[in-house]
């Protein structure tokens, strides 16, 4: 198995996909860093201060005013209310929700890229892992060796898992290094709150916990990894089922984007919560924002994703080991 994984790794590295992904991530992080920097600067100019308490207080008042507007939807109102309560909680407990520094940037970057950007990068690798062998024709050589088919597929799957781990590591390292140039490299120990519960009545703060940002980040990374593995496994399955890489990518891309859109509008369609793509924003549960559909929580989403993962993996292996190769 070790040798097979080395084979897959060799092909992966020779295809230079990881380098391309690293470049894409690097460019994006630079963009985000600049955007964030600009945002901080304009805020400072507008308010004439960089005191986070003043800024947060101002944000709270601004949100309150937006809430009083009659033009916003009930759903949006609810989300604003929750974030308002949360901001107030931070302020009341004298904790800066976004301590400036690279670790905070990293956290924000992860939280924003968990449902689309990182899955996209994963997809780039996952969706042609098997289908490229088909389109190259090399599958015929691969499957006529004295190695059982499930082993060949497993080696590919494990390589995918490793590649996903690497992509997330690259995202983490690059976002830390690049944003640190602007925001400084400190802030690992900054306190951060988690355990907010979003209920029907609003934000429940009875189970709030305080933890160091490094720990929070590690958890975030774990969740991002899990989401990526699930998305990767689904693309992997498509790669097995559909021999054309482009078609597989298209299907996956469509569902990811529809997920991003759906999360904003499915609140009244309850059974939509069983779709994998509305369950991707796991880090939001850690942060404590309103779920897209009432009643969703971390354990529900993890379980749903787990089921999708298991089914996708089963289908991949079932089909791959049985199917005739033309």
């Amino acid at each position: 198995m070790n040798k097979l994984i080395q084979n897959e790794m060799m092909k992966l590295i020779a295809k230079k996909r990881l380098i391309v992904i690293a470049i894409i991530i690097g460019v994006l992080v630079m963009l985000f860093t600049y955007a964030q920097y600009k945002q901080v600067q304009t805020q400072r100019e507008k308010l004439g201060t960089s005191d986070w308490r003043t800024i947060l207080q101002q944000q709270i008042v601004d949100t309150t005013n937006r809430l009083s507007s009659s033009r916003i939807t009930d759903e949006w109102k609810k989300q604003l209310q929750i974030s308002l309560q949360q901001q107030q909680y931070y302020l009341d407990h004298d904790i800066n929700p976004s301590e400036p520094g690279a670790p905070t940037f990293m956290r924000i970057f992860l939280e924003n890229s968990i449902d689309l950007f990182i899955p996209l990068m994963v997809m780039v690798i996952a969706s042609d892992l098997v289908s490229s062998e088909h389109s190259l024709g090399s599958i015929k050589l691969l499957l006529t060796r004295p190695v059982k088919r499930w082993k060949v597929l497993l080696s590919k799957y494990l390589t995918l898992c490793l590649a996903i781990s690497l992509i997330i590591a690259i995202a983490g390292i690059l976002s830390y290094l690049i944003s640190g140039l602007v925001f400084g490299y400190k802030g690992w120990g900054a306190p951060i709150l988690t355990g907010f519960n979003v209920t029907e009545t609003g934000l429940n703060t009875s189970e709030v916990k305080l933890m160091g940002q490094w720990k929070f980040l590690l958890m975030d990374f774990g969740l991002v990894w899990f989401v990526s593995i699930v998305v990767g496994t689904l693309s992997f399955m498509l790669s097995v089922l559909i021999r054309s890489t482009a078609a597989g990518m298209g299907v996956m891309l469509a569902s990811l984007i529809s997920g991003a859109i759906l999360t904003n509008m499915v609140s009244s369609w309850e059974s939509a919560k069983y779709f994998f793509m509305v369950n991707l924003r796991l880090t939001d549960y850690m942060k404590g924002t309103a779920p897209p559909i009432e009643g969703m929580n971390l354990s529900f989403s993890i379980q749903t994703l787990f089921v999708w993962w298991a089914v996708a993996l089963f289908v991949s292996f079932f089909v791959f080991t049985r199917r005739d190769v033309y």
Binding site: M10, K11, R145
Partner: peptide, 27 residues
């Protein structure tokens, strides 16, 4: 068994040696 089915479709992005190494690792 050794075989070539239709054309020998090897990995174009690997060197000849690495291709052989790849299949040798499976034996």
């Amino acid at each position: 068994l050794g075989c070539i089915v239709e054309n020998p479709e090897l990995y174009p992005y690997l060197s000849g040696y690495n291709n052989l190494l790849h299949f040798a690792r499976m034996l």
